[in-house]
Write a protein that binds this DNA or RNA. Structure first.
Lengths: 206, 206
DNA sequence: TAAATAGTGTCTGTGAGACACTATACA
DNA sequence: TGTATAGTGTCTCACAGACACTATTTA
């Protein structure tokens, strides 16, 4: 085999997590320690090894940041712009990953979805492309949604997550209606709010 | 760079075309001349060269069959099963392509979509995965649909295409209603049918 | 004039988006 | 008791699926 028929393939990961205290959806980034784009923020990524599954490569990229523990993983699409990496042509398979929610902001570089701009390589483009896909999975894709919300969540959390993923605040009436018809989701009373009527608690079955 | 960080990536193409005389949607295949899977049918594919765009690789795969002339191209998803090729681990980016319709069955191995089974590698899986995606693009994705129908087509052609892509015959009333609200499409009288009331002719604007 | 083919009007159910109003808790 | 927060009922619109009926052509 000539070298020409082998290609550098990286897996770049959009890893999301939800912080309950601030009700923010955060994206994992890291600051590049070396050229190219030294000092810039970038999506976590690794070069895919021969025979490695893409999901494994994505998990490896997160482990490298100390951000392992993703409970759901999937593929977005493959980016093939030859000039995307100044070191030479490469392919990038964009993957999504979700870590369970935490009470407080986790360690490491996590940035609100809206503020993830000015990234290295073509990562701004990848984030922009992925955003509507992620928004489309919310409340529809069970694995994605359940990983993002954790085993239970308040209706107010649901509003915050929806707003940050879609870019627009949902109408509460419609969101509660939509949640009510997700088969694996059930109401579990109310939870303590922050003044005002306490929000509903939603819990995943099983 | 160690050899481990380079990966064999192939582009495998689902190339469709519509035959007016038989009203069939056909998929391009080729018979493998060598091991592995010698003699079996397979999707056209090539190994992606360093720095090559995926769309270019897909076009090259079709040209190799004498089936060039695709007027629309896009990406489906990337398959990463390490055992998908017995020669060793590789990635496959599945691409779709559409050739303009022809009056009669084109040269080469073209098979009705339903009969594309027993294929080499994981190509049965790729076809099965791609089918709902292609059906979802029909009448929604302008480039895909227009390439498949050509610049004008009869309502009966539309029924046949829909049935073969979705697997179920559409109701004519609903299909005509749906076509009527595609902005780039307009009615252009009727066309000669084969006995019975002549079907409407639909024409793309521009 | 019957059979084959195709078009049209309309009913129903579902889901999204929106608004007004009601309910609960805390200061 | 007022303000902040959240839930609920309901209206409208768009769209998909389905059926019955009508229209046009050929044999």
């Amino acid at each position: 085999m000539t070298p020409d028929i082998r290609t550098v393939v990286s897996a770049d990961v959009l890893a999301l997590t939800f912080v309950r205290s601030t009700r923010e959806v955060l994206l994992a980034l890291h600051r590049r320690p070396a050229e190219p784009f030294a000092g810039d923020l970038a999506l976590p990524g690794v070069v895919v090894l021969t025979g490695e599954r893409l999901a494994d490569a994505a998990a490896r990229a997160l482990a490298k940041l100390g951000a392992s523990g993703a409970v759901a993983l999937g593929q977005l699409r493959t980016f093939d712009e030859p000039s995307r990496d100044p070191r030479g042509p490469s392919l990038s398979v964009a993957m999504w990953a979700v870590r369970p929610p935490s009470e407080d902001r986790p360690d490491g570089q996590w940035v609100a979805l809206d503020r993830a701009t000015g990234l290295a390589f073509d990562h701004d483009r990848i984030v922009a492309d992925a955003r509507p896909l992620l928004a489309g999975m919310l409340w529809r894709d069970g694995a994605f949604t359940r990983a993002l919300t954790g085993s239970s969540f308040s209706a107010t959390d649901a509003v915050a997550i929806t707003e940050q993923l879609t870019g627009r605040p949902p109408h509460r009436a419609n969101l509660n209606r939509d949640l009510a018809r997700i088969p694996d989701l059930e109401e579990a009373g109310t939870t303590t709010g922050r003044g005002g009527r306490p929000p509903k608690l939603w819990r995943w079955r099983d």
